[in-house]
Design a protein around this nucleic acid. Structure first.
Lengths: 128, 128
DNA sequence: CGGGATCCTGCATGATACTG
DNA sequence: CAGTATCATGCAGGATCCCG
């Protein structure tokens, strides 16, 4: 496969990308998207399940990122109830599934760093 | 390999990461780092070579990103002259080289999107 | 339960000019 | 040539409160 990054730019929906890597980063970049997606690899998760496994993110941000992932066609949002308490499940679309090898790659590289340099912190120790 | 992302956090240099994916994203995230690194896969490049192949980035930003990549141990900066005109070459360190498979992965996924949806724009058409 | 509304802050990035 | 200095800005993300 030939991937060009010189003297040509990509244009998708009026946005310019200087390199195909920046297209990918636009889809999964940011502080939380890869984390969310990584958690969805195992299967569908409810909003609250995601929140619990990601104790640091705020509800607003989690909600916003999920919306973006949904509008990018990467995750699916399915509502199971019409009246409160609501049940909403998020899952990967086929398009999102195509990201799994990449997500695992990203996690593995980060994990190598973690093994060398990171200290493990328990969630309970941060809760204020 | 087992990669944990629940109920534990990683701490590296006083920074907290909720998942190993976010460690990776901290190293190569942002708008330009993957683009720079992707261009360095072929071998060392001078500052101006990088600038020419990335016509949209400003000098300031390119410079800042290179500094960060350097301080993260991902790229190497080598100065060849003491007096102007300067010659400075950037290259991947061994640590940076360990990113190459991941970078190619990222580029390939983005390239699939590009093939389906992107219009190709010539650099000349943007220059003001 | 699963968010939305509002307000706010910091940081990533840009524009422009200048320099060893 | 390879940057730095200065100033400006937009937007990602946080804090808090509210709602069907």
């Amino acid at each position: 496969m030939k991937i060009k990054c010189d003297s040509e730019l990509f244009k998708i929906n009026e946005k310019l990308y200087p390199c195909s890597t920046s297209i990918t980063m636009d889809y999964i970049g940011g502080k939380w998207k890869t984390v969310i997606l990584y958690h969805l690899i195992d299967g569908p998760k409810r909003y609250n399940e995601l929140k619990k496994t990601m104790p640091v993110v705020t509800e607003r941000t989690l909600s916003l990122q999920l919306k973006q992932l949904e509008s990018d066609g990467i995750v699916n949002r399915k509502v199971y109830t019409t009246k409160p308490p609501l049940k909403v499940e998020y899952s990967l679309t086929d398009f999102g599934i195509s990201l799994i090898p990449l997500l695992k790659n990203i996690a593995e590289w980060g994990n190598k760093i973690a093994e060398q340099k990171a200290k493990i912190i328990k969630v309970e120790d941060i809760k204020k």
